[in-house]
Nucleic acid binder design. Structure first.
Lengths: 248, 248
DNA sequence: CTCGTCTTGCGAACAATGTACGCAAAGAGT
DNA sequence: ACTCTTTGCGTACATTGTTCGCAAGACGAG
């Protein structure tokens, strides 16, 4: 009994082994970072905040992560892990499989709109395992469709660029909407005079704006994405000649 | 502490009317910000730095710009001002005109790679005058090609999404390269073991990587961009029927 | 010339944030 | 029991966006 340090050494005075929570780990940190970003947005991601949510101090995170930049790379790849690109097992419908993968990628970006600026920062240079896995699956689909090796890579980049460009733009809009705290109706209403003014000298834009005015905005966005997706796939399919790669 | 009034008021003690430089203005601030970003990168853009370059204090900028966020919006639109989308005057070759506009947009993004994360942040919600003007010109080209109003907007978004997605990815790579201070050859060499390891379990990616190994990387990037651009335009042109919109 | 008023610039100061550093506590191996 | 390594963390510092109050011209009115 070391009666000099604690008056009554017992289970209750002992700091519970510091293991009340499953301790810190890179996986827990990244997972909690994603949750923090989803719930509070990109500007709420800072070391102290994240540490607090993990029941730890801010600087403890540096034992598992080199710094914020590396954390962001990990978070981006974690998000890529949610993308579902179909296996090439049923080799019949390569076009449908690619469309599904593209929609899955868009859905992920819209679920995590904070990823939009990070994509422009980390690009595809991340080399994360999840990104690599999705890329491998997608390029396999292109190879199975009949694209030769070099061109399959270009074709994949084309499709991914379209999806990321489109979804990034949507995500930026959604992020701004979320930061404003208003609903999409209120937002559009409050912005109407500005838009009217900006379109005063641009009749073609006004015309296009009016043409799709009336539907539920989310539906409009989805249709716009689907339209472009079909066009991109059309253009790619045309490279495969009249057979269209349907016979593999 | 103005404890030391000039003992002899004369031209030499008087601070030269503060107009040695043409004073501060929103235009000068934005232009200098672009130059700063080009020369020193995104992380060097802060108020004190920018103020110093303008021969002013950091907080003086707030008289002309609401804050850094607004400054970024202005800078992005300033960059959009460099994009050259052809007029619809010669209505013959809509496809060539759109390709030219697309290449001009890509060239702008590669000239200013720091814009990549900002695009994901500001998106197209910026409503800046230059962006509006380029959009108006581009949608005019689509209308002239034969697309009906609503579809012209979707078609334009498709093309822009592709270009932004592709160029953003390239820009992120170039930014990372610039930050590293190394040449592209050195960078690729130093990253080789990592890439090899990452591709160990991904034969299709390795295959594609090997297929385009050997050419000058910039040429490879340009060809990849050109490939996807043609595919996207193919897919869009197919919507116009057999006539291909060549007759307007 | 003098007196408000308005505009512009700016230094000081504050809050938020990323992160280096050194110390302490816990565990592992001998 | 002693030492070495790993992990957590409090302190502290540098950077940066931004606010605030003050001063110095610009300028029209009297």
């Amino acid at each position: 009994m070391p009666a000099d340090k604690p008056p009554v050494p017992s289970v209750w005075t002992r700091p519970r082994a510091t293991r009340e929570r499953p301790a810190l780990s890179r996986e827990r940190i990244v997972a909690e970072a994603v949750r923090l970003l989803d719930e509070e947005g990109a500007e709420a991601l800072n070391m102290r905040n994240l540490g607090t949510r993990l029941g730890a101090g801010a600087t403890s995170l540096y034992r598992h992560v080199a710094g914020k930049d590396e954390l962001i790379e990990l978070v981006v790849d974690e998000a890529y892990g949610e993308v579902r690109v179909p296996e090439a097992d049923p080799p019949g419908d390569w076009r449908g499989a690619l469309a599904e993968g593209a929609r899955s990628l868009r859905a992920m970006i819209l679920r995590h709109p904070w990823i939009a600026p990070m994509l422009g920062q980390a690009g595809l240079a991340t080399l994360g395992p999840n990104l690599m896995r999705q890329s491998e699956r997608m390029i396999t689909l292109f190879r199975a469709a009949g694209f030769p090796p070099g061109e399959a890579d270009q074709a994949m980049n084309t499709l991914i660029a379209y999806v990321i460009g489109m979804a990034t733009s949507e995500a930026a809009y959604l992020s701004m909407l979320a930061r404003s705290g208003r609903t999409e109706q209120e937002w559009a209403e409050s912005l109407r005079p500005v838009v009217e003014q900006a379109m005063r000298d641009h009749p073609r834009l006004r015309e296009a704006h009016a043409a799709q005015h009336g539907g539920d905005p989310e539906r409009v966005r989805e249709e716009g994405f689907g339209y472009g997706l079909e066009r991109v796939l059309d253009g790619l399919q045309a490279r495969l000649g009249p057979a269209g790669g349907s016979a593999g």
